[in-house]
Design a protein around this nucleic acid. Structure first.
Lengths: 180, 180
DNA sequence: AATATATGAATGAACG
DNA sequence: CGTTCATTCATATATT
């Protein structure tokens, strides 16, 4: 059970390492790569479409040959960018569902800790996973009910939507480059 | 261009963590980001140049709309379901994030006014939006830290002062995109 | 494969 | 301020 020190051959086993990244940092990197991937994909598509009609590209003196043959572009995308999102195991789901039925309210902070502790025996899980689950479960259960009875039964207490200050924005181009 | 912010916030710090990457993996990520960065830069330039000289692009409008057209672009009157809540633009977020890093405390009332004024040049915004943003930002960065170090009391370096407010998620990436 | 749906997570705003 | 709610985003899974 020793933490094998040398990473010799094992492909991704319990490797002991010095340089580390927090999950947060990993997430930043992942997102960055994913964003580039998406942008590139679209731009390439765009470029293909354009060049299909106009070959004036030459005027720009830009030779993009090689882009399409880029190892990374070709193979679709390495799955380094694949995000792993928590997926409750069957057992965990059963327990969570059971607890939700007991008390539809959000468990207290302390309760969350306990639940997490319990569920961790049945698979990887974190407190935020539990918190999110309960929140989503509650919100969706409520929404379902609303959809089921769109009618009324009750007077007008059903005042549409709170007249929230309508503030839309988006003056930015979908793509931006920051010059940090 | 190369790093394109890849080094973000002290990626290689001696943080205690479970998930680790080998130097080799880090290098792969760095290279991937660098490649995407370069490709994107070229493609964007190219595209701008092309569209500047040929407006016939319109023909492809629908095809490439994905990137340059905002989902709920102007003409909001048609969209009864238009977004109700404020969504910071990329620029606004960058500014807010920068200010938050300067001083993790809640800005004074006066400060809020100034910030709002400044940000309004980059998109619709109100003082309450700014206030809410700072409150949420602070609360969440705090919660995140708690989660990061569930057990503790030992960490000597654990000053209540958040040492590294790096919760940055999406939009602080060098390039961001509106994907829908 | 392309599309539809389910659901974990992110986040602006509101509440106490 | 700390929590909670409502809405939206993104991805995993299901369906055609």
């Amino acid at each position: 059970v020793g933490e094998a020190g040398a990473e010799g051959e094992g492909v991704g086993e319990g490797i002991l390492c010095v340089k580390v990244m927090t999950d947060e940092q990993m997430e930043v990197l992942r997102r960055q790569i994913a964003v580039y991937s998406t942008i590139c994909e679209k731009l390439v598509e765009m470029h293909k479409a354009i060049t299909a009609h106009h070959d004036s590209l030459a005027a720009l003196g830009m030779r993009v040959g090689g882009i399409y043959s880029d190892p990374m572009m070709a193979s679709g995308n390495n799955k380094i960018t694949g995000r792993q999102r928590w997926t409750p195991t069957t057992v965990q789901l059963q327990i969570l569902e059971a607890m939700f039925n007991q008390d539809n309210g959000m468990p207290s902070k302390q309760k969350i800790k306990e639940i997490t502790m319990e569920l961790s025996r049945h698979g990887q899980i974190s407190e935020s996973n539990v918190t999110n689950w309960f929140q989503n479960r509650k919100a969706r259960s409520k929404r379902k009910q609303m959809a089921a009875l769109p009618s009324n039964t009750e007077s007008e207490a059903l005042n549409e939507k709170k007249p929230k200050p309508n503030q839309s924005h988006h003056d930015d181009l979908p793509i931006s480059i920051n010059n940090n």
